[in-house]
Amino acid sequence: MGFLDGLAKWLGLKKKEANVLVVGLDNSGKTTIINHLKPEETKSHDIVPTIGFNVEKFQTKSLQFTAFDMSGQGRYRNLWEHYYKSCNGIIFVIDSSDKLRIVVAKDELDTLLDHVDIRSRPIPILFFANKMDIRDALSSVKCSTMMRLEQIMNKPWHICATNALTGEGLTEGTDWLADQLKILLGAKK
């Protein structure tokens, strides 16, 4: 088994693996996004508020993802930090229809970026401006200004508008993340 694994990896047949952390405020659509990315047969039909976290696996063309889907509710947010150390990338989901709480999201992002396990690492951060289908949702540009994303200097980041129900925009984002991670994991070797 071990030998075959090694052989497959050497031949480039087996995909590389990466851990990503999925965070964001409650009701922003994290679990729905992950659910949409999962293979067809493992999808679940009813999405309930996550308590704690869920581990899911999904893959893109070139990379195998293990996603830690964290709970976004206020009292569980301080548990995110336990997973910072072991993640290779972060997906930050923003509810673009909830203008009122976008400052809260900004606050949480700042705390995240300032954490000792994140601050100095050049890990890629992917922003999903979710719920673009809702009529008066903010555009991705508007979101990024409100979140002051331009101030993130030492990390690659990308934002795209998505609709997790239909899956619109998700692939664009995950492909970007996969590319970034491949560069990063390749560089490590």
């Binding site: 996550t50 308590i51 704690g52 976290f53 869920n54 569980y76 336990h82």
Partner: peptide
Amino acid sequence: DDVIIVTSSLTK
């Protein structure tokens, strides 16, 4: 502390 972190995983 914070053992409730596994709640969702266990319900799954």
